[in-house]
C-alpha cells in the first residue's frame, strides 16, 4: 500500500464513523449555532459595528465548536479502546496524524459553513459577493487550528481531565493563527483592498505550514507504546 492509499484508508474510517453516528455534524453544528445566537443577545443586532465585530463572533463560534469536534476525534478512539489498534496499524505515526488532521479539517469546515450561512441570515449580512475569499480564509484558519488541535487532542485524552485539557493547551498556542484569521476575515467583511488582505493571508499560510510540519514531526512521541 502506498502512502496515499494508507492515508485514504484512515480518513475514510473517520468519515464512515461520522456518517453512521453523525455526532459532529448534528451536535457540534448545533452548538456553534447556539454560540452565534448567544452573541446576538450580547451585541445590539443591526448595528453598524457588526461588520467590524462580525469576524470576532464568527471565529469565537468556530474555535469553540472546533474544540468540541477535536475532542471527539481521539476520545472516540479511547472510549472504544481503539487507540492500541490505531497504534498497531502498519503505518507511520505521521500518517495517522495526517489522516486524523484531514478528517478533522473536513468536519470543522462543514460545521463552519453551516455556521456562516446562519450567521449571514441572522445578522442580515450580505456576504455572497465576498464568499470565495471568505471561504479561503476560513479554510486556511481551520488548517492551522486543526493542525495543532489534532496533536493536542491525542495528548488531552490521555490526561486525567481529558476534554478540559484541550482548550487549555490549544488556545495559547493558536493565538497567531486566530489573530491572522480574524484580521483577514474582518478585512474581507469590511471590503478592504485586496493588498491588505493578502499580506495577512500569506502570514496565515506561513503559520499553517510551520504548525503542520512541527506537529507532524512530534506526533510520533505523543502516540507511543
Amino acid at each position: 500500500m502506498g502512502f496515499l492509499k494508507r492515508l485514504y484508508m484512515l480518513v475514510w474510517k473517520d468519515f464512515l464513523i461520522e456518517w453512521r453516528t453523525k455526532e459532529i455534524f448534528t451536535a457540534v453544528s448545533f452548538f456553534s449555532l447556539l454560540v452565534i445566537i448567544t452573541f446576538n443577545f450580547t451585541f445590539e443586532p443591526g448595528t453598524a459595528l457588526l461588520k467590524e465585530i462580525g469576524a470576532g463572533i464568527l471565529w469565537v463560534a468556530f474555535t469553540f465548536a472546533g474544540i468540541l469536534g477535536l475532542n471527539r476525534s481521539f476520545l472516540m478512539e479511547k472510549e472504544g479502546d481503539c487507540l492500541p489498534g490505531l497504534i498497531l496499524c502498519p503505518v507511520d505515526r505521521g500518517i495517522i496524524y495526517l489522516g486524523k488532521m484531514i478528517a478533522n479539517i473536513v468536519f470543522m469546515t462543514v460545521v463552519e459553513l453551516i455556521t456562516l450561512i446562519v450567521f449571514a441570515i441572522l445578522f442580515n449580512l450580505n456576504i455572497f459577493s465576498q464568499l470565495p475569499s471568505l471561504l479561503l480564509v476560513i479554510f486556511l484558519g481551520t488548517i492551522g487550528f486543526v493542525a495543532v488541535g489534532t496533536l493536542f487532542s491525542a495528548m488531552a485524552v490521555n490526561t486525567r481531565i481529558q476534554e478540559v485539557m484541550l482548550p487549555i493547551l490549544l488556545f495559547p498556542i493558536v493565538v497567531p493563527v486566530i489573530i491572522a484569521a480574524v484580521k483577514s476575515t474582518g478585512k474581507i467583511l469590511t471590503a478592504s483592498p485586496l493588498a491588505e488582505i493578502s499580506s495577512w493571508l500569506r502570514l496565515l499560510v506561513g503559520f499553517d505550514m510551520i504548525f503542520i510540519i512541527l506537529c507532524y514531526l512530534t506526533f510520533e512521541y505523543v502516540l507511543e507504546e
Binding site: 496533536l151 495528548m155 490526561t159 493565538v175 497567531p176 512530534t218 512521541y221
Partner: peptide, 28 residues
C-alpha cells in the same frame, strides 16, 4: 515516561510559537 513525552512536545511547540505570536501581534 508518557508525562515527560507530552510535556516535551508541548515545551517545544510552545517555544517555537513565541516568535510567531510576536510577529502576528506586531502586525496588529
Amino acid at each position: 515516561y508518557q508525562r515527560g513525552r507530552f510535556a516535551a512536545v508541548f515545551g517545544i511547540i510552545g517555544f517555537v510559537n513565541v516568535p510567531l505570536v510576536f510577529m502576528s501581534i506586531r502586525w496588529w
